[in-house]
Design a protein around this nucleic acid. Structure first.
Length: 567
DNA sequence: CTAGGGTTAG
């Protein structure tokens, strides 16, 4: 079945490549053509993403001495940007005698779409500077919030440039700022111009925030507008609800769609996988209709769904089948997923073999997951080999040293523990700080690890001490191996209590009526100690705790988690 | 006059 689908895809691709280039062919061989001829030729290159045709078209314009004005030059920027030739796009933009919001937007989104958010932001700030000399003082700061203030004051703003910049913020992970920009757009009376694309972009920011309240509100807005069916919007709704913990809402949106693309299927499969529901992932995947071709994301969704749900053998069988029938769809992510699966089920040597024979360079993430598996299964030889690779690639990451020293500690090799700890102190730098947040009455409350500046710091500290006494009485044992620093045990216990997700859960306990569920989001993966903490808290205080980390959901009730302690 | 913003995964 998979093979047949692959053939059909190939046939479609060949068809596309053979399509004749009529507008380009219609250009005169030498001398200047007219505006409309160039426009048609460039448009065709944009639609076909055909750089090999687009470049000669541009070259002919130059050779003929034709100087494209604002509109056509902008189309050239788009053509190059869509083809990924960002340097050429930028050259055209820089060479334009006049630019406007459209030409800037084209280039900014070019960077954004080619995964260069830093350049996108840099150019955005440049645009603001060019936009108004008066506002230059604000724009000089490379600070996003300042940039946003300037954007708010810019004279030439419309719903499209708003959407572009909201999308830019979301790509940078600045979802709160993105939401703020949408509010501005609304307050400026542009709500009537909001269309499917605007809402699609906005929903992405809400997915990042995991803000169910806002998500539902925006969904309501969309329904009231009675917009025509728009695939990307529905797909974003599926994704938003699943990332906000409401898988059944995702499913309802999915079931009600008049048609579904492969992205819709991917979004719902990812949703079930994220919630650890591997059986449902398998069932859905089997029910995919013939005419929807699974792509590499589909296969990744299924593999990672199996992996998250602990369906080890099914995952391995699936991978074998893909290797046999659809190996062209495989990328490094798929291998990473399967290596993780092998590692976690204790097949460390097999995992290592796969790394050695896969057609990709192993990434730090792959080595990292294998090192974690070596800790769980206490495997010294593989652990040392993997650690050597990893310390070579990223000597600054403290986590790797900690895991290696944990492996030695588990095997009672204390001299090696000490050696690794010393090495760590010498080489490491601060990692990405942990951050958790929760939303209460539409207010986003953010907590950082070992929070020092939170306005309710004192209350939270007092409450967490109280909780600690209660849960220790109920059998909670702190897992000191989660601490990245070489300090004494008492200090380790204090540091563990400072983890941002514990602060957020504590804040949730003290600010919501008893018995109500608590939902917390985290930017990194949750640590074992915090997972235990949440489990015991759920039992002692009779609360359902939903914890969304970077990868997945943990729904914790009565002292047990839907992940089955496997994540 | 025309154009620019959008969906899953990483």
């Amino acid at each position: 079945m998979l093979a047949a689908r692959g053939l059909r895809r190939l046939a479609a691709a060949i068809c596309l490549a053979r399509r004749s280039s009529s507008a380009v062919a219609a250009l005169p061989a030498a001398g200047a053509a007219r505006f409309h001829d160039y426009d048609a030729a460039v448009t065709e290159c944009i639609e076909r993403r055909a750089l090999r045709v687009g470049r000669p078209v541009h070259a002919r314009m130059v050779a003929a001495g034709y100087r494209p004005a604002l509109y056509l030059a902008t189309r050239l920027v788009i053509m190059y940007a869509r083809c990924g030739a960002l340097g050429d796009a930028r050259n055209v933009l820089d060479g334009m005698p006049k630019r406007n919001v459209v030409s800037w937007t084209a280039m900014i989104s070019g960077y954004s779409q080619n995964e260069r958010p830093a350049e996108a932001l840099e150019l955005f700030i440049t645009m603001l500077r060019a936009g108004s000399a008066l506002l230059d003082m604000y724009a000089k700061s490379e600070n996003v919030q300042e940039a946003r203030r300037v954007f708010d004051m810019l004279p030439a703003r419309d719903v499209v440039s708003y959407t572009a910049i909201i999308s830019g913020y979301t790509h940078l992970g600045l979802d709160e700022e993105a939401l703020g920009l949408f509010r501005q757009l609304y307050n400026e009376g542009m709500q009537m111009q909001c269309n499917q694309v605007t809402f699609t972009t906005l929903l992405n920011a809400l997915s990042g925030l995991a803000s169910l309240d806002y998500g539902k509100q925006v969904h309501g807005l969309i329904l009231r507008k009675e917009l025509p069916f728009f695939m990307a919007l529905q797909n974003s709704l599926i994704d938003m609800y699943s990332k906000c913990g409401k898988l059944l809402y995702s499913r309802r949106v999915f079931d009600n769609m008049p048609e579904r693309s492969v992205v819709s299927w991917n979004a719902i499969l990812m949703g079930y996988g994220r919630h650890g529901l591997a059986r449902e992932v398998a069932q859905l995947f089997r029910s995919m209709p013939e005419e929807v071709n699974p792509d590499s994301v589909t296969l990744l969704a299924v593999l990672s769904g199996y992996s998250h749900g602990g369906l080890v053998d099914e995952g391995l069988d699936m991978f074998d089948l893909i290797v046999k029938e659809q190996s062209t769809l495989l990328n490094i992510e798929h291998y990473g997923c399967v290596i993780d699966l092998l590692g976690r089920s204790g097949r460390l040597q097999k995992a290592l073999n796969l790394i050695q024979k896969m057609p990709f360079e192993p990434t730090r993430a792959i080595w990292g997951s294998l090192l974690g598996a070596c800790r769980v299964h206490v495997n010294i030889p593989v652990g040392e080999l993997v650690a050597r690779k990893l310390l070579d690639i990223e000597p600054e990451n403290a986590g790797n040293y900690v895991i290696l020293s944990n492996i030695y500690a588990a095997a009672g090799m204390w001299k090696d523990v000490f050696r690794v700890r010393k090495l760590m102190l010498k080489n490491t730098v601060i990692k990405e700080p942990g951050r958790s947040w929760m939303i209460l009455d539409k207010v986003i409350h953010t907590f950082h690890s070992s929070e020092r500046f939170h306005p309710r710091k004192e209350d939270i500290n007092a409450k967490i001490k109280e909780i600690y006494i209660d849960i220790k009485a109920a059998g909670f044992i702190p897992d000191l191996s989660c601490v990245l620093h070489d300090v004494d045990d008492e200090q380790k216990e204090r540091m563990l209590l400072g983890h941002s997700e514990k602060l957020a859960i504590t804040f949730g306990l003290m600010s919501t009526p008893s018995g109500l569920p608590i939902q917390v989001m985290k930017n990194l993966r949750i640590c074992v100690d915090c997972h235990n903490f949440a489990k015991v808290v759920s039992k002692v205080y009779g609360r359902e705790i939903s914890l969304r980390d970077r990868n997945r959901f943990h729904l914790i009730t009565e002292g047990a988690c839907t992940c089955g302690d496997y994540w």
